[in-house]
Design a protein around this nucleic acid. Sequence first.
DNA 1: CTAATAAGTCAAGACAATTGACTTAATAAG
DNA 2: CTTATTAAGTCAATTGTCTTGACTTATTAG
Lengths: 401, 401
Amino acid sequence: MNDVRPIRAKSGTNHEGTSAHNRRVIIDALRINGELSRADLARATWLTKQTVSNIIEELERDGLVRSQEPVRKGRGQPSTPYRLVPEGAFAIGLQIDRHVTRAVAVDLIGSVLVRAEAGLPTGGPSTGAKVILDLVAEVRSKLAGIVQQSEKRMVGLGVAMPGPFGVAGSGDDPWMMEAWQKFPLLETLTAGTGLDVGLQNDAAAAATAERMVGAAHGLDHAVCLFVGYGIGAGLILNGELYRGANGNAGEIGMALLFADGKTTPLEHRASLASLYQHLSADPADPDLHTCINDLASRGDQSIETWIETAAVELRWSIHLIETVFDPQTVILCGSAPEALVNRLIVAIGPLLPSIAERPGRMLPRLQPGMADPWSVALGAAAGPINRAFDPHFAAILKDSL
Amino acid sequence: MNDVRPIRAKSGTNHEGTSAHNRRVIIDALRINGELSRADLARATWLTKQTVSNIIEELERDGLVRSQEPVRKGRGQPSTPYRLVPEGAFAIGLQIDRHVTRAVAVDLIGSVLVRAEAGLPTGGPSTGAKVILDLVAEVRSKLAGIVQQSEKRMVGLGVAMPGPFGVAGSGDDPWMMEAWQKFPLLETLTAGTGLDVGLQNDAAAAATAERMVGAAHGLDHAVCLFVGYGIGAGLILNGELYRGANGNAGEIGMALLFADGKTTPLEHRASLASLYQHLSADPADPDLHTCINDLASRGDQSIETWIETAAVELRWSIHLIETVFDPQTVILCGSAPEALVNRLIVAIGPLLPSIAERPGRMLPRLQPGMADPWSVALGAAAGPINRAFDPHFAAILKDSL
DNA sequence: CTAATAAGTCAAGACAATTGACTTAATAAG
DNA sequence: CTTATTAAGTCAATTGTCTTGACTTATTAG
């Protein structure tokens, strides 16, 4: 009598969905192309001139878009280009790593306006939660000091931390990231900040950053190979970040390799963790980053041996990524020091043969991405901005409110 | 003066896009749930009762949907359930393999109504094109003999063949699949049949079939590991088939493995091609399929050795797929004989530890899919049906006409 | 027998994109 | 210098699709 099994269906849409999508398409077009006139927008988006005019007018009223000086280009009335207003929206990005946490305030076009960093006490969330909430509050108030009304235009707080999420842990993590994952982080942050909070893993955040302001800007298919304390891949598929069924897509650090008769996760052979171990360095040392940068840039032998080993694994990882995802390009990025990433890129080449070798390629198979300790926090902040302003399927549907 | 770089932007949408999407959502809901009343549909899709009524009325007029006997379920007016009408649409699916080609006619709900097979002469497309066109014509006319007006409701021709596509070939393929890829297949078929023609690789077709009528029915994230002459993965991501930048996503047969000091593509170690070689069998032998099925079902030693080797590689492939895609489930399917696939599933277990091991899993990590020589052709036919009737982002946009 | 409940319809209204004519402002051609 | 041509952008009426709220119908619980 009672229908027990729930009905599964996709959500429908309506006028508001249409209008929301078109608004997002206009914003996206301006983000990708820098500045465009109404006529340009109409041609590029397949919308009518009139519709574009209406949307632009509304966006201008909302302070998201601003007209520039008219430009004459041949016959006909000069066109008035429009640009995104950087101060049109802000987001906070928060990176929670093993021994450090970073927060940034970012504007609509992805410029970092405020940054702050704090050490994370060992002991996990019980002591760390306060540090984090204080850091977010600090960044927010500094932003409010720079920009009028920033709080009115705050779209959310994006958090990035090492994954994978929701997996029965191995228990051998000395940095207590596991404890962080069990901690009700989203609830704590929502309650403590009053903001909309979103979570992604660090590789996904790096990819989100590359898509907003980096090498993946405007690309529909790109994979960011992220070398941090661990190693992961951030996936841009069909122009959107792909998360998988449980938000763990791209967590290739856990991939098991067979070599020398042993089974080892990739992470143990190519990641900063493996480098620290190779150098017998203390990961909590605040000078480590610059120190490694120095070693890498002057080609120190201790680091070269590691680079040689890691490069073999990375070369193979890139081959696999190309084979499996068929992306337009692979971007190597990381919280690793820039000099190290550059050395790695050289050491990785030449790439293994793969289906990515095709006639008429426009983009390099492998490109360097941001190698900036702040890029993950930036990507974390880009999350809420994407959700609020970028065109994606879910944003059209009624079930997304 | 002249703006040389083209403007890149996503397409906008309009009322028609909304309406087309809602129609597709209703069809999809009926496909997944079997039968639903208007009120059920309204609740499940977030559309209003009135909108659902209008759409159902239109679909009924178009012959895509049919009312069932009203059912009393407690208080209130009895509800009238609706179902998809199988004869509402048809598609032809065509599989082009190394030495054989198969064509099927399929209806709206994915039932195979007609099947036909032909040997492909060596010599590639120059001689094979006619065979294929004749086969398609045969299937179409047989369908027309069974169903009135089938041509009026024909939505297209889907083609599946081994990938990868558009890659500078290695030239060592004795089956001339490379020549097929250079051949203007789509143009020839479009001209020769007058139908809308689409192309996917065989693993993608297998996944499309699993999504329409198999283990991936109604799932949003599933990967089909397809063991055929080669080996590939068909990717269902966010409820849609993922193709990658060049239609080659999932072509894992080309993935290079390092073992025994050598570099070998996965394909050479786990695929029917490797089995044929192991057995010194002739791939063109038409009895090979049943013969291998016999050998596998009675546990013949010659085949068991191969299974042991292949299972190692497949176990690792599944681990990697889980790690990289984070799917809800992995489906093992193939053009391999059913008994062989079943033996492989047993031999593969137990699976390697991965992020797929999580508390509260609903689905098995690995499930058997269709192991039917006709499943690829079925999946090929499912392609045009999906394009015509399933909800997806592109279908909402103005640039999709 | 009556009240409650649920399915489904009706008709008016709201919303957002479309259409085609119009205005404005520039350059090219004579 | 004048005129034709071209392109950007606006105006006002129209169209297509979903929404709203009241209404009708059919059933069961009490």
